[in-house]
Design a binder for these strands. Structure first.
Length: 457
RNA sequence: GGCCCGGUGGGAGAGUGGCUAUCCAGCGGACUGCAAAUCCGUUCACGCCGGUUCGAGUCCGGCCCGGGCCUCCA
Protein backbone atom coordinates (compact mmCIF):
# COMPACT_ATOMS: atom_id res chain seq x y z
CA UNK A 1 0.00 0.00 0.00
CA UNK A 2 1.54 3.25 -1.14
CA UNK A 3 1.55 6.01 1.42
CA UNK A 4 0.91 9.48 0.05
CA UNK A 5 1.61 12.60 2.09
CA UNK A 6 1.39 16.31 1.42
CA UNK A 7 4.76 18.02 1.49
CA UNK A 8 4.74 21.68 2.47
CA UNK A 9 7.98 22.18 0.55
CA UNK A 10 6.40 21.28 -2.77
CA UNK A 11 2.83 22.17 -1.79
CA UNK A 12 1.68 18.89 -3.24
CA UNK A 13 1.02 15.32 -2.28
CA UNK A 14 3.81 12.90 -2.94
CA UNK A 15 4.48 9.24 -2.45
CA UNK A 16 6.36 8.68 0.77
CA UNK A 17 9.63 6.80 0.32
CA UNK A 18 11.61 6.43 3.53
CA UNK A 19 15.36 6.88 3.38
CA UNK A 20 15.67 3.57 5.22
CA UNK A 21 12.50 1.45 5.50
CA UNK A 22 14.09 -0.27 8.46
CA UNK A 23 14.41 3.02 10.31
CA UNK A 24 11.71 5.53 9.44
CA UNK A 25 12.41 8.76 11.29
CA UNK A 26 9.86 11.36 12.37
CA UNK A 27 10.39 14.57 14.33
CA UNK A 28 7.53 16.68 15.65
CA UNK A 29 7.84 19.96 17.51
CA UNK A 30 6.52 19.49 21.00
CA UNK A 31 5.22 21.93 23.58
CA UNK A 32 6.81 24.81 25.40
CA UNK A 33 5.94 23.91 28.97
CA UNK A 34 4.73 27.07 30.67
CA UNK A 35 0.97 26.45 30.76
CA UNK A 36 -1.66 23.77 30.22
CA UNK A 37 -1.97 22.52 26.65
CA UNK A 38 -5.02 23.78 24.78
CA UNK A 39 -6.61 21.72 22.05
CA UNK A 40 -4.78 23.73 19.44
CA UNK A 41 -1.62 22.33 20.99
CA UNK A 42 -3.19 18.89 21.16
CA UNK A 43 -4.06 18.71 17.47
CA UNK A 44 -0.54 18.05 16.18
CA UNK A 45 0.03 15.53 18.95
CA UNK A 46 -3.06 13.57 17.92
CA UNK A 47 -2.51 13.98 14.18
CA UNK A 48 1.09 12.84 14.27
CA UNK A 49 0.17 10.06 16.66
CA UNK A 50 -2.06 8.70 13.90
CA UNK A 51 0.82 9.05 11.44
CA UNK A 52 3.12 7.24 13.88
CA UNK A 53 0.61 4.40 14.24
CA UNK A 54 0.19 4.19 10.47
CA UNK A 55 3.95 4.15 9.86
CA UNK A 56 4.33 1.40 12.44
CA UNK A 57 1.65 -0.59 10.64
CA UNK A 58 3.26 -0.10 7.23
CA UNK A 59 6.94 -0.49 8.12
CA UNK A 60 6.80 -2.50 11.35
CA UNK A 61 6.70 -1.43 14.97
CA UNK A 62 10.43 -1.59 15.50
CA UNK A 63 11.17 0.29 12.30
CA UNK A 64 9.85 3.73 13.20
CA UNK A 65 11.58 6.25 15.43
CA UNK A 66 9.44 9.14 16.63
CA UNK A 67 11.03 12.09 18.40
CA UNK A 68 9.00 14.88 19.99
CA UNK A 69 10.78 17.47 22.07
CA UNK A 70 9.94 19.41 25.19
CA UNK A 71 10.97 23.05 25.11
CA UNK A 72 11.94 23.83 28.68
CA UNK A 73 13.98 26.98 28.19
CA UNK A 74 12.20 29.93 26.68
CA UNK A 75 11.41 33.52 27.55
CA UNK A 76 7.73 32.71 28.04
CA UNK A 77 8.74 30.21 30.71
CA UNK A 78 10.96 32.76 32.43
CA UNK A 79 8.04 35.16 32.45
CA UNK A 80 5.60 32.55 33.76
CA UNK A 81 7.97 31.61 36.57
CA UNK A 82 8.52 35.23 37.51
CA UNK A 83 4.79 35.89 37.65
CA UNK A 84 4.13 32.81 39.75
CA UNK A 85 7.11 33.48 41.99
CA UNK A 86 8.43 30.03 41.25
CA UNK A 87 11.59 28.54 39.87
CA UNK A 88 11.88 27.69 36.21
CA UNK A 89 12.17 24.04 37.15
CA UNK A 90 8.96 24.13 39.16
CA UNK A 91 7.06 25.55 36.19
CA UNK A 92 8.51 23.25 33.55
CA UNK A 93 8.20 20.22 35.83
CA UNK A 94 4.56 20.87 36.58
CA UNK A 95 3.51 21.56 33.00
CA UNK A 96 5.54 18.71 31.57
CA UNK A 97 3.69 16.36 33.90
CA UNK A 98 0.37 17.96 32.99
CA UNK A 99 1.16 17.62 29.30
CA UNK A 100 1.99 13.95 29.71
CA UNK A 101 -1.19 13.30 31.66
CA UNK A 102 -3.37 15.14 29.12
CA UNK A 103 -1.84 13.45 26.09
CA UNK A 104 -2.24 10.08 27.71
CA UNK A 105 -5.94 10.83 28.17
CA UNK A 106 -6.08 11.66 24.46
CA UNK A 107 -4.71 8.22 23.69
CA UNK A 108 -1.42 9.45 22.24
CA UNK A 109 1.41 6.96 22.34
CA UNK A 110 4.55 8.32 23.93
CA UNK A 111 7.24 9.13 21.36
CA UNK A 112 10.31 6.92 21.24
CA UNK A 113 12.45 9.80 22.43
CA UNK A 114 11.32 12.96 24.17
CA UNK A 115 14.39 15.18 24.40
CA UNK A 116 14.48 18.36 26.45
CA UNK A 117 16.20 21.50 25.31
CA UNK A 118 18.05 21.94 28.60
CA UNK A 119 19.56 18.50 28.15
CA UNK A 120 21.14 19.48 24.83
CA UNK A 121 22.93 22.75 25.51
CA UNK A 122 26.32 21.27 24.67
CA UNK A 123 25.04 20.02 21.31
CA UNK A 124 23.59 23.44 20.56
CA UNK A 125 26.84 25.21 21.40
CA UNK A 126 28.71 22.77 19.17
CA UNK A 127 26.32 23.51 16.33
CA UNK A 128 26.77 27.26 16.75
CA UNK A 129 30.55 26.85 16.65
CA UNK A 130 30.23 24.88 13.47
CA UNK A 131 28.03 27.56 11.90
CA UNK A 132 30.49 30.28 12.91
CA UNK A 133 33.38 28.26 11.51
CA UNK A 134 31.53 28.02 8.20
CA UNK A 135 30.75 31.74 8.23
CA UNK A 136 27.02 31.18 8.49
CA UNK A 137 26.89 32.84 11.90
CA UNK A 138 28.60 35.64 13.79
CA UNK A 139 28.93 36.83 17.38
CA UNK A 140 27.93 40.37 18.30
CA UNK A 141 27.44 41.93 21.73
CA UNK A 142 27.06 38.60 23.50
CA UNK A 143 24.63 37.34 20.87
CA UNK A 144 25.27 34.90 18.11
CA UNK A 145 23.23 35.41 14.98
CA UNK A 146 22.57 33.33 11.93
CA UNK A 147 23.49 35.18 8.78
CA UNK A 148 20.56 34.73 6.45
CA UNK A 149 22.40 36.24 3.51
CA UNK A 150 24.81 33.27 3.52
CA UNK A 151 22.07 30.86 2.60
CA UNK A 152 21.01 30.91 -1.01
CA UNK A 153 17.50 29.52 -0.79
CA UNK A 154 16.46 30.83 2.60
CA UNK A 155 12.68 31.20 2.55
CA UNK A 156 12.01 28.19 0.36
CA UNK A 157 9.67 26.47 2.82
CA UNK A 158 7.56 29.50 3.68
CA UNK A 159 7.95 31.06 0.22
CA UNK A 160 9.01 34.33 1.71
CA UNK A 161 11.68 36.37 0.02
CA UNK A 162 14.23 37.95 2.33
CA UNK A 163 13.24 41.47 1.29
CA UNK A 164 9.58 41.06 2.03
CA UNK A 165 10.46 39.62 5.42
CA UNK A 166 12.39 42.70 6.26
CA UNK A 167 9.71 44.96 4.84
CA UNK A 168 6.99 43.26 6.86
CA UNK A 169 8.94 42.90 10.09
CA UNK A 170 6.84 43.71 13.11
CA UNK A 171 9.64 44.01 15.58
CA UNK A 172 12.32 46.57 16.00
CA UNK A 173 15.54 45.59 14.37
CA UNK A 174 18.27 45.01 16.90
CA UNK A 175 21.33 47.17 16.25
CA UNK A 176 23.77 44.28 16.48
CA UNK A 177 22.24 42.52 13.49
CA UNK A 178 24.19 42.73 10.25
CA UNK A 179 21.02 42.12 8.35
CA UNK A 180 17.50 42.69 9.64
CA UNK A 181 16.50 39.15 8.68
CA UNK A 182 19.21 37.51 10.79
CA UNK A 183 17.94 35.51 13.74
CA UNK A 184 19.31 34.64 17.14
CA UNK A 185 21.15 31.40 17.85
CA UNK A 186 22.38 32.43 21.28
CA UNK A 187 21.57 35.33 23.53
CA UNK A 188 23.06 36.64 26.77
CA UNK A 189 21.33 35.99 30.10
CA UNK A 190 21.09 38.32 33.08
CA UNK A 191 22.00 37.02 36.50
CA UNK A 192 18.34 36.20 37.20
CA UNK A 193 17.75 34.45 33.89
CA UNK A 194 18.68 30.84 33.23
CA UNK A 195 22.00 30.62 31.45
CA UNK A 196 24.89 28.39 30.53
CA UNK A 197 28.54 29.19 30.03
CA UNK A 198 29.54 29.43 26.42
CA UNK A 199 32.36 30.83 24.27
CA UNK A 200 30.20 33.98 23.99
CA UNK A 201 29.59 34.38 27.69
CA UNK A 202 26.78 33.17 29.91
CA UNK A 203 23.61 32.88 27.90
CA UNK A 204 20.82 30.71 26.54
CA UNK A 205 19.85 29.34 23.13
CA UNK A 206 17.45 30.86 20.65
CA UNK A 207 14.27 28.91 20.14
CA UNK A 208 14.93 27.47 16.69
CA UNK A 209 18.28 25.98 17.55
CA UNK A 210 17.09 23.27 19.89
CA UNK A 211 15.15 21.34 17.25
CA UNK A 212 18.13 21.36 14.89
CA UNK A 213 20.43 20.08 17.62
CA UNK A 214 18.03 17.50 19.04
CA UNK A 215 16.87 16.12 15.71
CA UNK A 216 20.49 15.66 14.69
CA UNK A 217 21.36 13.87 17.89
CA UNK A 218 18.38 11.52 17.88
CA UNK A 219 17.62 11.09 14.17
CA UNK A 220 20.76 12.08 12.32
CA UNK A 221 21.61 14.93 9.98
CA UNK A 222 19.03 13.86 7.40
CA UNK A 223 15.72 12.23 8.24
CA UNK A 224 12.31 11.52 6.76
CA UNK A 225 9.51 13.64 8.15
CA UNK A 226 9.33 16.78 10.23
CA UNK A 227 5.96 17.91 11.48
CA UNK A 228 4.24 20.63 13.45
CA UNK A 229 1.54 23.24 13.31
CA UNK A 230 1.15 25.57 10.37
CA UNK A 231 2.25 28.50 12.44
CA UNK A 232 5.70 26.96 12.74
CA UNK A 233 6.39 27.14 9.01
CA UNK A 234 7.78 30.60 9.51
CA UNK A 235 10.03 31.41 11.19
CA UNK A 236 10.65 28.25 13.21
CA UNK A 237 10.97 25.60 10.53
CA UNK A 238 12.48 27.94 8.00
CA UNK A 239 15.23 28.68 10.50
CA UNK A 240 15.70 25.05 11.44
CA UNK A 241 16.32 24.29 7.78
CA UNK A 242 18.83 27.13 7.60
CA UNK A 243 20.70 26.01 10.70
CA UNK A 244 20.78 22.31 9.90
CA UNK A 245 21.55 22.44 6.20
CA UNK A 246 24.25 25.06 6.68
CA UNK A 247 25.81 23.25 9.64
CA UNK A 248 25.82 19.82 8.04
CA UNK A 249 26.10 20.63 4.38
CA UNK A 250 23.44 18.11 3.43
CA UNK A 251 19.68 17.90 3.05
CA UNK A 252 17.82 18.18 6.34
CA UNK A 253 14.33 16.72 5.92
CA UNK A 254 12.59 15.06 3.00
CA UNK A 255 9.00 15.84 3.86
CA UNK A 256 7.47 18.67 5.89
CA UNK A 257 3.98 18.22 7.28
CA UNK A 258 1.91 20.95 8.90
CA UNK A 259 -1.46 20.61 10.54
CA UNK A 260 -4.09 23.32 10.16
CA UNK A 261 -5.24 25.53 12.97
CA UNK A 262 -7.91 24.90 15.50
CA UNK A 263 -10.29 27.83 15.32
CA UNK A 264 -13.12 29.04 17.48
CA UNK A 265 -15.91 30.81 15.68
CA UNK A 266 -13.69 30.94 12.63
CA UNK A 267 -10.77 32.61 14.38
CA UNK A 268 -7.49 31.00 15.25
CA UNK A 269 -7.36 29.69 18.79
CA UNK A 270 -4.40 31.09 20.63
CA UNK A 271 -3.19 31.99 24.04
CA UNK A 272 -2.84 35.61 23.07
CA UNK A 273 -6.48 35.86 21.94
CA UNK A 274 -7.66 34.01 25.02
CA UNK A 275 -10.22 32.02 23.03
CA UNK A 276 -8.88 28.62 23.96
CA UNK A 277 -10.05 25.50 25.75
CA UNK A 278 -7.42 23.56 27.63
CA UNK A 279 -7.42 19.80 27.33
CA UNK A 280 -7.40 19.71 31.11
CA UNK A 281 -10.73 21.59 31.27
CA UNK A 282 -12.33 19.66 28.45
CA UNK A 283 -11.57 16.39 30.19
CA UNK A 284 -14.02 17.48 32.88
CA UNK A 285 -16.71 17.46 30.25
CA UNK A 286 -15.92 14.60 27.91
CA UNK A 287 -13.81 11.47 27.76
CA UNK A 288 -10.36 11.97 26.26
CA UNK A 289 -11.32 9.62 23.46
CA UNK A 290 -14.16 11.93 22.41
CA UNK A 291 -11.78 14.90 22.39
CA UNK A 292 -9.41 12.86 20.28
CA UNK A 293 -12.15 11.92 17.83
CA UNK A 294 -13.30 15.54 17.57
CA UNK A 295 -9.76 16.43 16.48
CA UNK A 296 -9.85 13.74 13.81
CA UNK A 297 -13.19 14.68 12.24
CA UNK A 298 -11.48 17.10 9.88
CA UNK A 299 -8.54 16.19 7.65
CA UNK A 300 -5.40 17.42 9.39
CA UNK A 301 -4.52 20.18 6.91
CA UNK A 302 -7.98 21.73 7.09
CA UNK A 303 -8.87 24.26 9.71
CA UNK A 304 -10.83 22.66 12.53
CA UNK A 305 -13.49 24.84 14.08
CA UNK A 306 -13.78 23.59 17.63
CA UNK A 307 -17.04 23.74 19.53
CA UNK A 308 -18.58 21.98 22.49
CA UNK A 309 -21.35 20.83 20.13
CA UNK A 310 -18.72 19.21 17.99
CA UNK A 311 -17.34 17.51 21.06
CA UNK A 312 -20.80 16.16 21.89
CA UNK A 313 -21.13 14.87 18.35
CA UNK A 314 -17.81 13.09 18.68
CA UNK A 315 -19.09 11.46 21.84
CA UNK A 316 -22.24 10.32 19.99
CA UNK A 317 -20.17 8.89 17.17
CA UNK A 318 -18.16 6.87 19.67
CA UNK A 319 -21.39 5.69 21.30
CA UNK A 320 -22.48 4.35 17.93
CA UNK A 321 -19.20 2.53 17.33
CA UNK A 322 -19.08 1.12 20.84
CA UNK A 323 -22.75 0.08 20.52
CA UNK A 324 -21.83 -1.99 17.50
CA UNK A 325 -19.00 -3.60 19.45
CA UNK A 326 -21.22 -4.20 22.45
CA UNK A 327 -23.74 -5.92 20.20
CA UNK A 328 -20.94 -8.14 18.93
CA UNK A 329 -19.75 -8.96 22.42
CA UNK A 330 -19.96 -12.69 21.75
CA UNK A 331 -18.44 -12.54 18.29
CA UNK A 332 -14.88 -13.79 18.16
CA UNK A 333 -12.97 -11.38 15.96
CA UNK A 334 -11.56 -12.98 12.84
CA UNK A 335 -7.83 -13.37 12.37
CA UNK A 336 -7.73 -11.48 9.13
CA UNK A 337 -7.99 -7.73 9.17
CA UNK A 338 -9.07 -7.32 5.56
CA UNK A 339 -12.12 -5.44 6.83
CA UNK A 340 -9.85 -2.60 7.88
CA UNK A 341 -8.37 -2.22 4.41
CA UNK A 342 -10.60 0.73 3.38
CA UNK A 343 -9.54 2.49 6.55
CA UNK A 344 -5.86 1.85 5.85
CA UNK A 345 -6.41 3.16 2.33
CA UNK A 346 -8.06 6.33 3.56
CA UNK A 347 -5.26 7.01 6.03
CA UNK A 348 -2.67 6.25 3.38
CA UNK A 349 -4.06 9.13 1.34
CA UNK A 350 -2.52 11.94 3.38
CA UNK A 351 -4.24 10.87 6.59
CA UNK A 352 -7.81 11.22 5.43
CA UNK A 353 -9.27 10.64 8.88
CA UNK A 354 -12.86 11.73 8.01
CA UNK A 355 -12.92 9.11 5.27
CA UNK A 356 -11.37 6.58 7.63
CA UNK A 357 -14.08 7.29 10.20
CA UNK A 358 -16.78 6.90 7.55
CA UNK A 359 -15.35 3.47 6.73
CA UNK A 360 -15.39 2.59 10.40
CA UNK A 361 -19.07 3.51 10.52
CA UNK A 362 -19.61 1.23 7.54
CA UNK A 363 -18.01 -1.61 9.50
CA UNK A 364 -20.20 -0.80 12.48
CA UNK A 365 -23.22 -0.91 10.17
CA UNK A 366 -22.22 -4.35 8.95
CA UNK A 367 -21.82 -5.49 12.51
CA UNK A 368 -25.28 -4.19 13.45
CA UNK A 369 -27.03 -5.51 10.40
CA UNK A 370 -25.44 -8.78 9.42
CA UNK A 371 -26.43 -12.17 10.77
CA UNK A 372 -23.66 -13.95 8.92
CA UNK A 373 -21.17 -15.19 11.49
CA UNK A 374 -18.13 -14.96 9.27
CA UNK A 375 -19.02 -11.50 8.04
CA UNK A 376 -19.49 -10.26 11.58
CA UNK A 377 -16.23 -11.79 12.75
CA UNK A 378 -14.46 -9.98 9.93
CA UNK A 379 -16.21 -6.70 10.58
CA UNK A 380 -15.39 -6.84 14.25
CA UNK A 381 -11.73 -7.55 13.56
CA UNK A 382 -11.62 -4.78 10.98
CA UNK A 383 -13.28 -2.26 13.25
CA UNK A 384 -10.99 -3.01 16.15
CA UNK A 385 -7.90 -2.90 13.99
CA UNK A 386 -8.99 0.36 12.36
CA UNK A 387 -9.62 1.75 15.82
CA UNK A 388 -6.08 0.84 16.73
CA UNK A 389 -4.74 2.84 13.80
CA UNK A 390 -6.73 5.89 14.82
CA UNK A 391 -6.11 5.36 18.52
CA UNK A 392 -9.80 4.74 19.17
CA UNK A 393 -12.05 1.96 20.51
CA UNK A 394 -9.37 0.69 22.84
CA UNK A 395 -11.76 0.37 25.75
CA UNK A 396 -14.11 -2.41 26.61
CA UNK A 397 -17.62 -1.32 25.49
CA UNK A 398 -18.88 -2.21 28.94
CA UNK A 399 -16.49 0.25 30.50
CA UNK A 400 -17.23 2.91 27.89
CA UNK A 401 -20.96 2.84 28.62
CA UNK A 402 -21.00 2.11 32.32
CA UNK A 403 -17.79 3.54 33.66
CA UNK A 404 -15.46 1.38 35.64
CA UNK A 405 -17.39 1.40 38.89
CA UNK A 406 -20.88 -0.03 38.60
CA UNK A 407 -23.17 1.65 41.05
CA UNK A 408 -25.24 -0.76 43.06
CA UNK A 409 -28.16 1.66 43.12
CA UNK A 410 -28.45 1.53 39.34
CA UNK A 411 -28.43 -2.25 39.29
CA UNK A 412 -31.11 -2.38 41.91
CA UNK A 413 -33.34 0.03 40.04
CA UNK A 414 -32.88 -1.80 36.76
CA UNK A 415 -33.80 -5.05 38.52
CA UNK A 416 -36.85 -3.44 40.11
CA UNK A 417 -37.96 -2.14 36.77
CA UNK A 418 -37.59 -5.55 35.21
CA UNK A 419 -39.80 -7.04 37.89
CA UNK A 420 -42.40 -4.34 37.28
CA UNK A 421 -42.35 -4.99 33.55
CA UNK A 422 -42.76 -8.72 33.99
CA UNK A 423 -45.81 -7.95 36.09
CA UNK A 424 -47.01 -5.60 33.33
CA UNK A 425 -46.85 -2.69 35.74
CA UNK A 426 -45.72 -0.31 33.01
CA UNK A 427 -46.47 2.82 34.98
CA UNK A 428 -43.97 1.76 37.61
CA UNK A 429 -41.47 0.64 34.96
CA UNK A 430 -41.65 4.01 33.24
CA UNK A 431 -41.33 5.82 36.55
CA UNK A 432 -38.12 3.96 37.33
CA UNK A 433 -36.79 4.60 33.85
CA UNK A 434 -37.42 8.33 34.22
CA UNK A 435 -35.82 8.33 37.62
CA UNK A 436 -32.73 6.56 36.33
CA UNK A 437 -32.37 9.20 33.68
CA UNK A 438 -32.99 12.05 36.09
CA UNK A 439 -30.83 10.93 38.96
CA UNK A 440 -28.08 8.89 37.30
CA UNK A 441 -28.17 10.06 33.67
CA UNK A 442 -28.75 6.45 32.75
CA UNK A 443 -30.63 5.19 29.69
CA UNK A 444 -32.31 1.81 29.91
CA UNK A 445 -32.79 -0.26 26.78
CA UNK A 446 -35.08 -3.27 26.76
CA UNK A 447 -34.06 -6.24 24.70
CA UNK A 448 -36.35 -8.72 22.91
CA UNK A 449 -35.63 -11.50 25.41
CA UNK A 450 -37.09 -9.43 28.24
CA UNK A 451 -33.77 -8.39 29.74
CA UNK A 452 -32.67 -4.77 30.02
CA UNK A 453 -29.37 -3.13 29.30
CA UNK A 454 -28.29 0.24 30.71
CA UNK A 455 -25.71 2.86 29.86
CA UNK A 456 -24.74 6.33 30.88
CA UNK A 457 -25.97 8.92 28.41
C1' G B 1 1.47 45.40 0.14
C1' G B 2 3.70 40.13 -0.59
C1' C B 3 2.68 35.04 0.23
C1' C B 4 -0.62 30.89 1.72
C1' C B 5 -5.33 28.35 2.72
C1' G B 6 -10.50 27.90 2.56
C1' G B 7 -16.03 28.78 0.82
C1' U B 8 -20.21 21.50 -0.18
C1' G B 9 -27.21 20.00 1.93
C1' G B 10 -30.20 22.41 8.80
C1' G B 11 -25.02 21.25 11.41
C1' A B 12 -20.12 18.69 11.05
C1' G B 13 -17.29 16.92 7.00
C1' A B 14 -15.19 13.65 2.66
C1' G B 15 -15.03 13.12 -2.50
C1' U B 16 -14.88 11.76 -7.99
C1' G B 17 -15.28 15.02 -14.83
C1' G B 18 -21.18 11.46 -15.63
C1' C B 19 -23.24 6.77 -10.59
C1' U B 20 -25.78 6.95 -2.18
C1' A B 21 -19.81 9.63 1.14
C1' U B 22 -20.35 9.20 6.33
C1' C B 23 -22.08 11.05 11.13
C1' C B 24 -25.66 14.30 13.72
C1' A B 25 -30.46 16.51 13.03
C1' G B 26 -35.48 16.15 10.22
C1' C B 27 -39.38 13.16 8.01
C1' G B 28 -41.79 8.11 7.05
C1' G B 29 -41.63 2.91 8.29
C1' A B 30 -40.07 -1.83 10.92
C1' C B 31 -39.12 -3.38 15.89
C1' U B 32 -41.06 -1.99 21.17
C1' G B 33 -46.36 -2.17 26.25
C1' C B 34 -44.21 2.88 25.44
C1' A B 35 -39.33 4.16 24.66
C1' A B 36 -34.16 3.71 23.56
C1' A B 37 -30.83 1.34 20.46
C1' U B 38 -30.79 -0.89 15.72
C1' C B 39 -32.48 -1.62 10.74
C1' C B 40 -35.10 0.09 6.07
C1' G B 41 -36.68 4.30 3.19
C1' U B 42 -36.40 9.59 2.46
C1' U B 43 -36.18 15.61 1.95
C1' C B 44 -32.25 19.32 1.71
C1' A B 45 -25.80 20.72 -1.69
C1' C B 46 -21.77 22.11 -3.94
C1' G B 47 -19.91 31.28 -2.98
C1' C B 48 -20.73 34.33 -7.88
C1' C B 49 -19.85 35.05 -13.28
C1' G B 50 -17.76 33.32 -17.60
C1' G B 51 -14.98 29.34 -20.36
C1' U B 52 -13.42 24.10 -21.82
C1' U B 53 -16.53 19.56 -22.43
C1' C B 54 -21.53 15.37 -25.00
C1' G B 55 -21.42 16.27 -19.61
C1' A B 56 -18.22 20.23 -14.10
C1' G B 57 -18.85 21.29 -6.74
C1' U B 58 -15.04 18.31 -9.72
C1' C B 59 -10.60 21.39 -14.98
C1' C B 60 -9.38 26.86 -16.61
C1' G B 61 -10.03 32.36 -15.99
C1' G B 62 -12.10 36.44 -13.37
C1' C B 63 -14.75 38.17 -9.15
C1' C B 64 -16.88 38.16 -4.09
C1' C B 65 -16.41 36.54 0.96
C1' G B 66 -13.72 34.38 5.18
C1' G B 67 -9.22 32.84 7.65
C1' G B 68 -3.91 32.78 8.23
C1' C B 69 1.58 34.03 7.80
C1' C B 70 5.20 38.16 7.05
C1' U B 71 10.59 36.98 13.57
C1' C B 72 5.20 35.16 20.53
C1' C B 73 2.40 30.88 18.47
C1' A B 74 0.62 23.87 17.54
Amino acid sequence: MALTLYNTLSRSKQRFEPIDPGNVRLYVCGPTVYDHAHIGNARPVVVFDVLYRLLRHVYGEGCVRYVRNITDVDDKIIEAARKAGETIEAVTGRYTAAFHADMKELGALPPDVEPRATGHIAEMIAMIERLIAKDHAYAAEGHVLFSVATMADYGRLSRHGRDELVAGARVEIAPYKRDPADFVLWKPSDADQPGWDSPWGRGRPGWHLECSAMSKKHLGETFDIHGGGQDLIFPHHENEIAQSTCAHGKPFVGLWMHNGYVTVGGEKMSKSLGNFHTVHDLLERAPGEAIRLSLLTAQYRQPLDFSLDGLDRAKSALDRLYTALAGARDVVAADDIAGAEPVVEALSDDLNTPKALAEMHALAGTLNRSDDARERARAKAGLLFAGGLLGLLGRDPESWFKGDGVEEAIRTMVADRRRARSEKDFAEADRIRDELMRTHNVVVEDRPDGSSEWRRA
